[in-house]
Design a protein around this nucleic acid. Structure first.
Length: 139
DNA sequence: GCCAACGTTGGC
DNA sequence: GCCAACGTTGGC
């Protein structure tokens, strides 16, 4: 079981949009970055991830689950790009902001802090646990 | 709205 | 294969 973080600009694809898809889930398409794609290739069904709103909110707002492993991205003919499908699992009780994360010394090494531009990131199990505590999510 | 950081492209 | 130029992302 691995943990991830999915970043999205809410004006493009928000947590509400994701929740509206229910258990059907949705492709995490549109990624055009090799590092992010490689992370998606490593994902397995049942892996969990944080759903992070970039730009305006800058906070983790929900938990998602990988429901389909990497497959060609249907939004392009370019076969370099793949994506996984994810579904919303639950909203967090307390959104965890980027500022909260930066204020927590244990999270100083998070990719979110050090490589702000990467849209799909790995999260360690320690980081997962700490953030779930902060968010009021039971693990 | 600005700007820094980073990834990608393309000329050589 | 290197590196300058460019485009995009995202925090502030």
């Amino acid at each position: 079981m691995a943990f991830w973080l999915f970043k999205s600009e809410p004006s493009n694809w928000s947590w509400d949009d994701q929740v509206a898809k229910g258990d059907t889930g949705e492709e995490w398409d549109g990624v055009r970055n090799y590092q992010a794609r490689n992370h998606m290739r490593e994902m397995q069904r049942g892996d969990l991830g944080f759903f992070y709103h970039s730009q305006k909110d800058k906070e983790i707002v929900g938990i998602v689950e990988v429901i389909a492993e990497a497959h060609p991205d249907s939004t392009t003919d370019d076969d370099r790009w793949e994506c996984v499908d994810i579904k919303a699992v639950s909203s967090v009780a307390t959104p965890v902001t980027l500022a909260d994360i930066k204020n927590e010394p244990k999270l100083a090494d998070m990719v979110l802090v050090n490589n702000t531009r990467l849209s799909v990131q790995p999260v360690t199990s320690d980081e997962w646990k700490i953030i779930c505590d902060m968010a009021g999510v039971k693990t």
